[in-house]
């Protein structure tokens, strides 16, 4: 490996809401094709950070570049797939209608749109529920449909905010297999999670606590450096609680 190229570059980013600073000078590189996990408790600033990467929010100061383009930039939106913490679906519409709507926003048409809808629904194992009204879906099904929408336009960069909440372990595993598959085929994935065992599956991890990045590294390296057996132990170490 002759130095992987950075797909996402975050340089000294601060974010202030009114007078409340929620991100304190985060700098970070996410490399091409990697699955990068942002690990931290709720309220630590993960969502704010990924929103800024996705170009929905703007940093108060500092710079964020995705594929060499400074964010936020409207043209970059079609290269990014974003899945928010809330499912953000139209409950009155069927799964298919939801997919068609968002697919059209990304410029997918007719045959291509049909093909992609079929592929993503297969992936999240919802093909048989295509025509059902989303309002009748269970929490986990909504989460999967939301993920399917994020994947629909085959984005180069996937930003997923807690994507596997409420999914059963079997499905969660198959979703993670798909993440590995996507990453092997050139997609860069940023995932936020507060589940420690899920963090283990990421190629590299960034630990976020109270708006600061407290550690970055591969899960193994983080465990080794702190002499702990688990990611949780490493998090405690960097968080200032030396066990």
């Amino acid at each position: 490996m002759s130095g992987p190229e950075a797909c996402i570059q975050i340089h000294d980013v601060y974010r202030t809401f009114k007078s409340n600073e929620v991100i304190h000078g985060v700098s970070l590189n996410v490399y091409n094709n990697e699955i990068f996990g942002l690990l931290g408790p709720s309220g630590s600033g993960k969502t704010t950070l990924v929103k800024m990467i996705a170009g929905i929010d703007e940093a108060t100061s500092g710079r964020i570049e995705v594929m060499g383009t400074q964010m936020p930039k409207l043209e970059m939106m079609k290269h990014i797939g974003y899945m928010a913490q809330s499912d953000a679906l139209y409950m009155e519409l069927s799964a298919k209608e939801n997919l068609e709507f968002f697919g059209s926003l990304f410029g997918l048409r007719r045959e291509k749109l049909k093909k992609r809808i079929h592929e993503v629904m297969e992936l999240v194992n919802l093909t048989s529920h295509l025509k059902r009204t989303v309002g009748h879906f269970s929490g986990g099904m909504k989460r999967r449909l939301s993920l399917a929408i994020a994947l629909l336009h085959e984005p180069e960069v996937l930003i997923l905010d807690e994507p596997t909440v409420g999914m059963d372990p079997v499905l969660r595993k198959s979703i993670w297999d798909e993440f590995d598959h996507l990453s092997a085929n050139g997609t860069t994935i940023v995932i936020t999670t507060h589940v420690m065992d899920e963090a283990d599956k990421c190629h590299r991890l960034g630990m976020v606590r109270e708006g600061s990045l407290i550690a970055v590294g591969t899960p193994d390296a983080l465990k080794e450096d702190t002499g702990s057996a688990t990611i949780e132990g490493a998090f405690l170490y960097y968080g200032g609680v030396r066990a």
């Binding site: 409207l74 079609k78 809330s86 499912d87 953000a88 679906l89 929408i149």
Partner: peptide
């Protein structure tokens, strides 16, 4: 409130 606006704003929609 349902978050769909945020999702709309994560697309190239102006």
């Amino acid at each position: 409130t349902s978050g769909t606006l945020e999702r709309l704003l994560a697309t190239p929609l102006r």
